[in-house]
């Protein structure tokens, strides 16, 4: 039951908040005097205690957050005016209540996201949300983010779990031998991808694969005296950063990887030392030396490019 004093107080607070927001020109939160008269959290808690308790402890529920829902219309900011809903005694969708939750089927994804974007359209990360891969494939903000429980996306250890809801192949790949420390929470999906939209391939955070990788692997940027062009074009030509069974997250071991572009020298077949039927001489440019160890990179060690200006012997083949 909402007292007259608290209604008046809420109205005054809402009017003051509206004036402040108009002054700073932030149209993200329009004056919501009508919503400010809507039932507040104390009423909603009668049936939704858990959600209200979480809200009160969250960023959204802090009165000190002058830009937040607590100074606009509280619950009604996102869920709509609950007056009729309360009068009718509650119920899913009753009274025109909006449920922008991820599993809710009562709103379109565009409408769900529009609620969040009322406040969260700004910043540097969401300029390309509208028209992005996730948005156009039927995702809303609440497909990944939760408002009334711990948001797993914002915690490094649990963020990948959210992404794996759709990206199943990566769920297996991160368990492989050669991998980034994703399981340990040291590298997370959003360290490389901007799920809110990017102009680059695969929603790369820095708009290209190479620039994203350079965040941690800037030694590969060069330019170098001796360049290996696929390196500067796209690291994922050779590497799968989610995890592989070959060293250094290569998609395939040398020589098989290298033989997708380069004509191999010698007539040797890829082989391991000691295999039956092996030729007597397996030293030098042999099938063993370009299969085992680091494979082709045993000799062509500067595979990402080398800065050696020396002429002899031949650094241009990435020897040294």
């Amino acid at each position: 039951m909402v007292s007259r004093a608290s209604v008046a107080g809420a109205r005054i607070l809402a009017l003051a908040a509206s004036a402040l927001l108009l002054f700073i020109g932030n149209a993200a939160i329009a004056p919501q005097s009508a919503l400010a008269q809507a039932p507040g959290p104390e009423v909603c808690a009668g049936c939704h205690e858990g959600q209200v308790n979480y809200y009160k402890n969250s960023v959204h529920g802090q009165k000190g957050n002058l830009r937040g829902p607590s100074n606009a219309g509280e619950c009604s900011t996102c869920h709509g005016d609950g007056t009729e809903h309360v009068k009718a005694g509650g119920g899913k969708g009753v009274g025109g209540m909006k449920n922008p939750g991820g599993k809710s089927a009562s709103m379109s994804n565009e409408d769900k996201s529009a609620i969040c974007l009322t406040c969260h359209a700004g910043g540097s990360k969401r300029t390309h949300w509208v028209g992005s891969t996730h948005e156009t494939r039927g995702n809303a903000c609440t497909s990944c983010h939760t408002m009334h429980t711990n948001d797993k996306v914002l915690v490094k250890l649990t963020q990948p779990e959210v992404c794996f809801a759709c990206h199943k192949q990566q769920r297996v790949e991160v368990q492989r031998m050669s991998r980034h420390p994703i399981l340990e929470g040291k590298v997370v999906c959003s360290d490389c991808h901007n799920p809110h939209g990017s102009i680059g391939k695969a929603l790369m955070k820095r708009d290209s694969v190479v620039e994203t990788c350079y965040q941690c692997h800037a030694e590969k940027r060069g330019p170098f005296v001796h360049a290996h062009d696929p390196v500067t074009e796209d690291c994922s030509i050779c590497h799968n950063p989610h995890g592989t069974v070959a060293d250094t997250m290569l998609k395939l071991r040398p020589p098989f990887l290298c033989h997708q572009c380069h004509t191999p020298h010698g007539g040797q077949i890829a082989q391991a030392r000691g295999q039956p039927g092996q030729a007597a001489n397996i030293t030098g440019k042999s099938g063993v030396n370009y299969t085992q160890g680091r494979g082709c990179v045993n000799c062509h060690t500067q595979i990402h490019g080398g800065n050696n200006p020396g002429l002899l012997p031949t650094p241009q083949f990435m020897f040294r």
Partner: peptide
Amino acid sequence: KTLGLSQTAVALAMAAGFPFAYAQEGGGV
């Protein structure tokens, strides 16, 4: 992003195999 909400992040880190991609479980306070 926060570092982690669990006090025993070590255990979670080792345990985290993310086998369960159940999308947003509702409820939970």
